[in-house]
Design a protein around this nucleic acid. Structure first.
Lengths: 215, 215
DNA sequence: GCAGTAACTTAACGTTGTTAACTTAACACC
DNA sequence: GGTGTTAAGTTAACAACGTTAAGTTACTGC
C-alpha cells in the first residue's frame, strides 16, 4: 500500500515547488506584483494547475506567510537571549525590526494587509499560543516574565495588553518605513535611530523606577 | 473673456464629481475594491472620461488623500489644545487615532500603502512644513514646544526624531488594528486600552522626571 | 461660416483571477 | 489482463480590470 504514500509525496512535492516559486517572486515583486500565471510559468505548469493545490491566490500566499510566522518564532526561539527580562524584550524588538526590514514584502503581507477572517484550522491550533511556533506567544511569555520579575510598574499587570502595545510600537516603526520611508515629505531620521529610540522610550515608560536606571 | 473661466469652472465641477464619487466608494470598498468603471458608472460617465481629469487611478486617489492630509492638519489646528506641551501631544495622538479608526480605508491608503516616489509639485510645496496644512509639521511643532519647555529628558533634542517615534507609536496601534484587528489568533485588548497605554508609556518614556508626576 | 479645441464616447488591448470541460495516466479490481 | 475510477494537469473561456487610440460632438474665437 505504498502507492498512496508515494502519490501524496509527489503531490506535496509539486505543492512545494509552487510555494517556492511563489516565494521567490513574492520577495521581489510583492503580492500585487505576482500573478498566478507567472508562478505557473516559473515551474512550467499551466496556470490552472495551481488550483489543484490551492483554492485561490490569497490562500497560496497565506500558506507562505504561515511558514514565515513560524520562521519568525523560530528566530526568536533560537536567538541567544539575555537573562534580564527587560533586555530580552529589547532584543525581541530588535529581532522583529530586523525581520521586517529584511523581508519587507513578507512583512507587508503578514502584518500590513487585512486578510478575510478565517476559522483557525488544525495547523493553526497547533501553533497558536505555543511560544516555539507563535511569535506573539513568545513575546507575551517574555512580557509575563518581566511582570513576574517585578520589572514593570505595578499597574501593568495585563501581559496581553503590554505585549500588544510593545508589538504596536515596533510595528509602527517598520510599517511607516515600508509605507512611507521613501516619502520626501518627511525629513526621516535613519531607521536605526528611530528603532532604537522607540525601544528605549517604550521600555522606559514601562519599567518601575523609570528615572533611575537604564543605561 | 468669462468663457474660459466658465469652462474651467465646469471642468473642475466634473472633476469634483469624480472625486466625490471616488471618495464615497473608497470609504466602503477601499482602494482595491474601487474600479474606474464603478466610479464612472456612479456619475453616469464613461470610464475613460475620468482620464481627462486624472492621469491614472493612483493619481486620482492620491488627490483624495491629499485632501485628507490637509483635513487631518485642519482637525489638529482647529482642536482646542491644552497649554501643557505634554498633554497637547497626548491630545494630538488621540485625535490621530480617532482619525484612523473613523476612516480606516483612507488611513490604509494614506499611511499603510507604499506609493511610488514623486517629485513634490507646487501644491505640495505650499503645504509642506506648514503646520496649518501639514499634520506632520504640526506634530513636530508641538514636539519642539515640549523640548523648549524642558519637558523631555535632556538627550532628546532632535524634534524630528522624537516626532517620528511618536508618530510610529500611534501608527502602530492603528495599523495593527486595521490589518490584524479581526485576527482571532491574538487575544486583542480593546483598541481604546491599547491606544491609551501606548500614549501613556511613550510619553512617560520621554519626559524628564519619569517617576514623579503623571496623573 | 469655419477651423480649432477639448470634453467625452466607443471600441479595443493586454492582463488579471478563476471556472468548466477535457485529456491522460496510473491505480484497484474482477 | 482488460475495465472503470480517480485525480493531476491542460486548454479554452469568462468577467473584470486599468488604460490607450480613434472617433464624435459641442462650443469658441476669428
Amino acid at each position: 500500500m505504498g502507492v498512496k504514500e508515494r502519490r501524496e509525496r509527489e503531490k506535496s512535492e509539486t505543492r512545494d515547488k509552487i510555494l517556492d516559486a511563489a516565494r521567490e517572486l513574492f520577495i521581489t515583486e510583492g503580492y500585487e506584483g505576482v500573478s498566478m500565471r507567472k508562478v505557473a510559468e516559473k515551474i512550467e505548469y499551466s496556470p490552472t494547475a495551481i488550483y489543484v493545490h490551492f483554492p485561490d491566490k490569497n490562500e497560496l500566499f497565506r500558506e507562505l506567510c504561515h511558514q514565515d510566522y513560524a520562521r519568525l518564532a523560530e528566530v526568536f526561539q533560537s536567538s541567544v537571549m539575555s537573562t534580564d527580562p527587560v533586555d530580552r524584550l529589547k532584543q525581541i524588538g530588535a529581532i522583529y525590526i530586523e525581520f521586517g526590514t529584511r523581508y519587507p514584502n513578507h512583512y507587508k503581507f503578514m502584518f500590513m494587509t487585512p486578510h478575510p477572517a478565517h476559522e483557525p484550522d488544525d495547523v493553526d491550533r497547533e501553533m497558536m499560543g505555543n511560544p516555539e511556533m507563535d511569535a506573539y506567544a513568545f513575546l507575551k511569555w517574555a512580557v509575563q516574565q518581566a511582570i513576574d520579575a517585578g520589572c514593570f510598574r505595578e499597574e501593568l499587570r495585563d501581559a496581553a495588553l503590554v505585549s500588544q502595545t510593545l508589538w504596536a510600537s515596533v510595528h509602527g516603526v517598520i510599517a511607516l518605513e515600508i509605507a512611507k520611508g521613501c516619502d520626501a515629505w518627511v525629513d526621516w531620521r535613519p531607521l536605526r535611530d528611530r528603532a532604537e529610540m522607540m525601544l528605549d522610550i517604550t521600555l522606559r515608560g514601562l519599567i518601575r523606577t523609570a528615572g533611575g536606571e537604564g543605561k
